[in-house]
């Protein structure tokens, strides 16, 4: 298991570009660090548009909701965000990384 951006990210980035070309606000989230067992490898990406449609993944589904909320805010204020999720973090415990790993996700608006 050492998948990188190659296969999956191409579709994600193409979709992000297509949404942007259609005039929709878009944000991109990228897994930049993982510790322990985490469901998606570093480089995994997710793109989301302003109405909440998204492609790709940054976890097995457990933190996507929180990431998308942050992505919506990034679309508004244009500021990049570095998010930490892991079992040592109370909020992350609630969103629940089932595997017990930790991940760091970078969220930015596509300008």
């Amino acid at each position: 298991m050492n998948e990188t951006g190659t296969a999956n990210s191409e579709d994600v980035l193409n979709q992000a570009a297509a949404w942007r070309a259609a005039g929709k606000p878009v944000a991109i989230a990228t897994v930049v660090t993982t510790w322990g067992s985490s469901p998606r490898p570093v480089g995994s990406q997710l793109a989301v548009e302003a109405e909440g449609a998204f492609v790709g993944s940054v976890s097995g589904g457990c933190i996507e909701g929180a990431v998308i909320r942050e992505a919506m805010e990034a679309m508004e204020d244009g500021k990049p965000r570095l998010l930490d999720f892991g079992v040592t973090d109370t909020q992350a415990w609630e969103v629940g990384l089932a595997c017990g790993g930790k991940v760091q996700v970078f969220v930015e608006r596509l300008d």
């Binding site: 980035l13 570009a17 942007r20 930015e108 300008d111």
Partner: peptide, 29 residues
């Protein structure tokens, strides 16, 4: 991410040119 960066990145991938995207995690540069 700037739209121009994404366009170039997709063009590189289409041309099968290995590329590295460097992003400053504090500033987004």
């Amino acid at each position: 991410m700037k739209g121009e960066t994404l366009r170039q990145l997709l063009a590189d991938k289409a041309a099968e040119r290995p590329v590295v995207l460097a992003t400053n995690l504090t500033t987004g540069a």
